[in-house]
Simulated scan of single mutants.
Amino acid sequence: MSPYNINEKDMICSSFVYRFGDSVRCLDKAEKLLLMLMLLAFSSSATTYTTISTGTWDANGAPPSPLLSGDVVNVNHDGVYFDWPNTVTIQSGATFNINNGGNIQLMNLVIDDGGIMTLGAGGILRSVGSITNNSDHVVIDGELTDNSSFVNNGAITGSGTITVSGSASGSGTVNGTNMDDVDWSEEVDMSEPLPVTLVFLRAKFQNDQVVIEWLTSSETNNNYFSIERSKSGDDWEVIGELAGSGNSNSNRSYMYIDRQPQKGRIYYRIKQTDFDGKFEYFDAVKVNVGASIHAVFANSLIQITGEPGTHWLLFDLQGHVKQSGIIAHSGMAILNPTFGSGLFVLKSGESTYKVSVR
């Protein structure tokens, strides 16, 4: 029998066929299992790298970069290691453990989506360059220090500390808190909850005033809020303060009215201050303060006043446009409300004004 011919017996045995000369037989279950294990062991490139003393690694040598799926690195001993490439990448399925007493320094660290990193209590990791995390499997219970840029697009949990000397950004979270809501100007202690969890902050121009509203879902040791305003987004002035709720685990709503806003694009932000003097800023919001527009219902007519040439729209509370027009050179427009009575909203640009028609 030629070894290159496929007969009926080959078809039944599929790929588990043993050939010796012209004889053919199927492998039994034990032989199949042994063959599969041998093939798996031969094809697998997963390797475990472990520190065995200060500055040295086990027989597998220093870990390569990138770490491939299945690779495991265990840093167990005190010491600083400089023998890694400039960028250490932990690919999906690879694991990097810095255990209690582990102390390591590297240039740049990249954790891919699906990569696993654990910095145990008492462990230290320093990055001379940057750290970029895209994984949801990062636990920091030790000390993490970044001396350049820290980008987190994943989820970091733990009870350790993170210190960033350069910039910090990303769409990820630290113990459930958005990156933008963390004060990175000092060491971040992950064991301490942030004093305030902000749900939203918004501002709108209405009736010649700017209404600033925000909602919190929890507050810890919160003394007060400062409302700040800026024309450029760089130079800020405090325009008011509101007392915080101290300690709260329920939604708390706040509102502040800027009764004399400047014309044009204006920025507003909130500064939160604890009873112990610590503070944090929330992201700024902007609003366009347009030309003033007014409306009053008198003598069965709606009288609209504003700058000549201003376009306006009149809406009902369901958002339907009831009438529109342009303010005349006299600075006034007169409407006969044939559309009925009720509460209506006059809008011009971002300026709104409520008028009641009876």
Score class of each variant (00 low, 15 high):
C26P: 06
T48Q: 12
V24L: 15
A59R: 13
D10K: 05
K32W: 08
S44R: 00
L68H: 04
R25N: 15
L33R: 09
S69N: 11
N60M: 08
F20I: 09
D10W: 11
A62S: 13
S14V: 07
L39T: 03
V75T: 02
T47S: 13
W57M: 06
L33Y: 07
T54E: 15
S15C: 04
G61L: 07
L39C: 12
I52L: 07
L34Q: 13
V17G: 01
V73F: 03
S69R: 06
A41I: 07
S23F: 14
M38F: 02
S53T: 08
S69A: 13
R25I: 13
T48S: 14
S44P: 04
S23K: 14
S15W: 11
T47P: 01
A46W: 10
R19A: 05
G61Y: 02
K29P: 04
F20P: 00
T54G: 07
D71G: 02
P66K: 01
L40K: 08
L67N: 05
E31I: 01
P63I: 03
V75M: 08
S44D: 14
P64M: 09
T54Q: 11
R19E: 12
V73M: 00
L37P: 00
D71P: 02
A59P: 01
T51S: 15
T50M: 11
E31M: 13
S53K: 15
I12D: 09
M11K: 15
C26M: 03
D28M: 10
L35N: 11
V24T: 09
N76P: 02
P63S: 01
A41N: 14
T48C: 01
S65A: 02
L67T: 03
A46E: 15
L37W: 06
L34W: 06
D71S: 03
T48G: 07
A59D: 07
G55C: 08
C26L: 07
S14C: 12
A46R: 09
S43Q: 09
R19L: 15
L35W: 06
N74F: 12
L37R: 14
S53W: 11
D71Y: 01
K32C: 09
A30H: 10
V17I: 15
E31V: 05
T51N: 02
N74W: 12
S43D: 02
T48N: 07
L37N: 10
S53Q: 13
S65E: 00
L39K: 12
R19D: 01
L67K: 05
L27S: 02
D22N: 09
L35F: 10
S14I: 04
L35V: 07
M36S: 14
P66H: 04
N74I: 02
N60C: 04
A62E: 01
A59S: 12
